[in-house]
Amino acid sequence: MDIGQVVQLMRNGIMQVLILTAPVLGAALIIGLIVAIFQATTSIQEQTLTFLPKLIVILAVIFLLGGWMFSTLSDYTRTLFDAISNIGS
């Protein structure tokens, strides 16, 4: 295995992490922004107000996209194991 293959495996791993976490982080960011705007307009500065909406939205996104996330990660894992098995031959 040369350095190019190692770099490609690392690049693919980082891309998988970014692809799988982007929907969850994006939803949390949007909800956080909405709650922050609501807090700014109503002058409610309760710190715990942001926690529950974010938690609900993150769980909903994981519930909706969990199957896709699992299949994507399992496909990547199979590809990675195939690459590892080809190293020895």
Rank of each mutant, 00 (worst) to 15 (best):
M1H: 09
D2R: 07
I3R: 10
I3N: 09
G4M: 07
G4Y: 09
G4N: 12
G4D: 12
Q5D: 13
Q5G: 14
Q5Y: 08
V6E: 06
Q8Y: 10
L9K: 03
L9M: 13
L9Q: 08
M10T: 13
M10S: 13
M10G: 13
M10F: 14
R11V: 14
R11L: 14
G13Q: 07
G13I: 07
G13P: 07
G13L: 07
I14C: 11
I14K: 01
M15S: 11
M15H: 04
M15R: 07
Q16N: 11
Q16C: 10
V17P: 02
L18G: 14
L18R: 09
I19N: 02
I19R: 07
L20D: 02
T21Q: 03
T21K: 00
A22Q: 04
P23D: 06
P23L: 02
P23Y: 01
V24W: 06
L25I: 11
L25H: 01
L25M: 12
G26I: 04
G26V: 04
A27G: 05
A28G: 10
A28K: 04
A28L: 08
A28I: 13
L29I: 06
L29S: 06
I30Y: 00
I30V: 15
I30P: 03
I30M: 08
I31S: 04
I34K: 02
I34D: 03
A36W: 04
A36R: 08
I37N: 01
F38Q: 11
Q39R: 06
Q39V: 07
Q39I: 09
A40T: 11
A40L: 03
T41P: 01
T41D: 01
S43F: 07
S43P: 01
I44K: 03
I44Y: 02
I44N: 08
I44L: 12
Q45W: 09
Q45C: 00
Q45R: 12
Q45E: 11
E46G: 05
E46W: 06
E46S: 15
E46H: 08
Q47T: 08
T48A: 13
T48E: 06
L49H: 03
F51H: 07
L52D: 03
L52C: 05
L52T: 13
P53S: 00
K54V: 08
V57M: 11
V57Y: 02
I58A: 10
L59T: 09
L59N: 04
A60N: 02
I62V: 15
I62P: 00
F63C: 10
F63H: 08
L64K: 06
L64P: 00
L64R: 05
L65A: 11
L65K: 09
L65R: 10
G66S: 04
G67F: 01
G67W: 02
W68H: 11
W68V: 09
W68F: 09
W68A: 14
W68I: 11
W68L: 11
F70Q: 10
T72L: 14
T72V: 10
T72N: 08
T72H: 02
L73Y: 10
L73G: 15
L73D: 04
S74V: 11
S74F: 12
D75F: 02
Y76E: 10
T77P: 00
T77G: 09
T77L: 15
R78T: 14
R78D: 13
T79D: 14
T79L: 14
L80E: 00
L80R: 01
L80V: 08
L80S: 05
L80C: 04
F81N: 05
A83G: 01
A83P: 01
I84P: 01
I84M: 13
I84C: 10
G88V: 15
G88H: 12
G88N: 15
S89R: 14
S89T: 13
